[in-house]
Design a protein around this nucleic acid. Sequence first.
DNA 1: CCCCGAGCTACATATGTCAC
DNA 2: GTGACATATGTAGCTCGGGG
Length: 340
Amino acid sequence: MKKRLSIRDIAQQLNISITTVSFILNGKAKEKRISEQVTERVLKLVEELDYKPNQIARSLRTGKSKIICLMVENISNEFFSSIARHIEENAFEQGYKIIYCSTENKPEKTRELIKMFRERNIDGYIISPPEGIKEDIQSLLEDKLPVVLFDRLIPDLPTNFVMIDNSDATYKAIHHLVEQGRQKIAFITLDSRQTQMKDRLEGYKKGIKEQDLKPYVLKVNYTDSYAQHVTSIATFLKKHKEVDAVLFSTNYLATRGIEALNTLNLKIPSDIGVIAFDDLDFFKLYQPTITAIAQPVEEMSKKLIEIILKKLEGGREESDQEEVVLPTQLIVRNSSLAQK
DNA sequence: CCCCGAGCTACATATGTCAC
DNA sequence: GTGACATATGTAGCTCGGGG
């Protein structure tokens, strides 16, 4: 069995100490006043032998892994994957790597993932938490591990977070639909106690109440399949034929909802107006184009990584909690416009 | 007193060794 | 067979020695 090259091999081959090699590889040659000759010889040999420091050993010594985990609901969702992409890029620039994983909104799976990350000495946690993991997050906080939540909060647990103004987002959407002459506006959402879902519902209700309209709300199960969602939405709309506009609380409910409208042969926007949450590429390309509530993905990502790095590098200075709430933008397209 | 760099140790965990 | 103790792993950070 071939043994992996270690820093010791480099040192022995050049007849210098391990420490010297370590200094040079960590960019401290100047600071430690190591001669240019030695520095060069080390770098050359490292290159020749293609030596790579053992990250496990390194993290054993330093207690740092230079890895941040990003736990999202579902990495295949375009919203989360584009957040992930931006975070990865920002982290990479700072010498950090990202590990993604999907919680699937399951507390048991999330718990196991957090446990695994702790055992692997992961430096920081960026999490969009499912319900039921308050204790786990709390224990991370107690151990002074850098944690930032995003997309949703855990009620009664003070943490760093980056969010959007969910209630304002749906409120503005209702306002726009009313402006376009819609009067029977339905809200299709998840049966969920997650804060972002509660807030989106609240914004809807506020808008409806202010306009003195009748609320139409459908709550579907998160765990239901694609087909089940399509059926539930179609059934709901068949039952409430007077509905003339639909606001969807997530991007996947919107795509499934559009499919439901197609099965019912309802035309957008003449029969029914549509607004989706999140600005997916699909909504720009679909005919008619779909009006969408866009989250500031780039800014959210930037903030997230900024906060986590600040906690990471800033030592243990008991810096206060960072609470960021960003505005959304309603991107008006054809699906919500008034009919002449 | 400075410069260069060698030597030692902590870190977490698994496996080995030895006395009983 | 069991429990106690020793050793090995790769690295970074600190201390300090030796030569000038």
